[in-house]
């Protein structure tokens, strides 16, 4: 039973990270109908930036708490900046191109960013400092649920709440929803669509950076390739919940997290990545619109 609870909570942690990254896919997809293949790389760049900044600050003798805060903020800023730039270079010129073009451009961007980090930094795994302190009050439970897991879970919850507030109640959020529904109509009602698309990329990217920080400090190491697999998984989560749907992405993240946690815990850990993929294929076969997605009828 304890093992089960442990796996359940482990799945919850994992799932909340997938959810954070899945949100970026889902938001972008909702607005520009594009799988942003480079999203996983944005998350990887966030983790790298945090590592670099944290190491530099560490060498200059900053205190632990200031390192955590500064590194996190800078990582989020940089991820957003990259997300913004990627959109301007690889997607914006292709807004009216045939569907295949932005997809190829997206995958090209993903490959480019991976190798940019590989060449500028290193291909080795780098140890990532644990940004999360051990809480004393968690000690009695630490064998099933660590402080790190608690922090991850809470951060995710806060990030999601913030996002929901932004989307539901702010002007930008309303414009975003309008653009997602009907871009032409939104434009005619005075929404600056280019700006909204950029904003979406920026918000999605900063969530990815938060996810990147959490996962990197949880696992303890990073390299240039981490964005790739996590990218596919987060996408799976987004599809699982229903691409385009924000609560769907969160739910999908949790389901994927539990699936992986239980499958690796009870079946085999060699094929960790295979389970996620198998789930993706099953979903696509049996419920392509996802759990919370509406099956959209294409306008003709």
């Amino acid at each position: 039973m304890e093992y089960f609870v442990q796996l359940f909570l482990g799945g919850l942690t994992r799932g909340s990270i997938y959810a954070l990254i899945a949100l970026g896919y889902t938001m972008v997809y909702g607005i520009v109908e594009l799988i942003n293949f480079a999203h996983g790389e944005i998350y990887m760049i966030g983790a790298f930036t945090a590592l670099i900044i944290a190491s530099v600050l560490g060498l200059y003798g900053f205190s632990e708490i200031s390192i955590i805060i500064l590194a996190s903020i800078i990582a989020i800023i940089y991820s957003s900046a990259y997300g913004y730039t990627v959109e301007k270079i690889a997607y914006k010129p292709l807004r009216h191109a045939p569907r295949l073009s932005p997809l190829i451009s997206a995958i090209g961007m993903s490959i480019f960013l991976q190798n940019y980090v590989l060449l500028a930094q290193t291909s080795d795994f780098l140890p990532f400092p644990s940004l999360i302190p051990e809480f004393e009050f968690m000690n009695p439970y630490s064998h099933i649920f660590s402080s790190a897991e608690l922090v991850i879970f809470c951060t995710t919850a806060v990030a999601m709440t913030l996002l929901t507030i932004i989307i539901k109640f702010t002007k930008v959020g309303i414009a975003m929803r309008a653009t997602a529904q009907d871009r032409t109509m939104a434009m005619l009602s005075g929404v600056n669509v280019n700006k909204i698309i950029s904003t979406t990329f920026v918000i999605g990217s900063s969530l990815a950076a938060v996810g990147g920080l959490l996962i990197a400090s949880h696992i303890g190491q990073i390299n240039f390739y981490i964005g790739f697999i996590v990218g596919i998984k987060a996408f799976t989560a987004a599809v699982l919940g229903g691409i385009g749907s924000i609560p769907g992405a969160v739910l999908g993240g949790f389901i994927l997290g539990w699936t992986e946690s239980f499958a690796t815990g009870y079946i085999s850990s060699d094929y960790e990545d295979v389970f996620a993929f198998a789930l993706l294929v099953l979903i696509l076969i049996f419920r392509p619109a996802g759990i919370m997605g509406k099956s959209r009828v294409q306008k003709v």
């Binding site: 270079i89 690889a90 010129p93 292709l94 191109a97 073009s101 932005p102 190829i104 451009s105 995958i107 090209g108 961007m109 993903s110 490959i111 480019f112 960013l113 991976q114 190798n115 940019y116 590989l118 060449l119």
Partner: peptide, 13 residues
């Protein structure tokens, strides 16, 4: 690899 990525983006654009 850097080049392949760049080619895909630039050719599409």
């Amino acid at each position: 690899m850097l080049l392949f990525g760049a080619i895909m983006v630039l050719m599409m654009v």
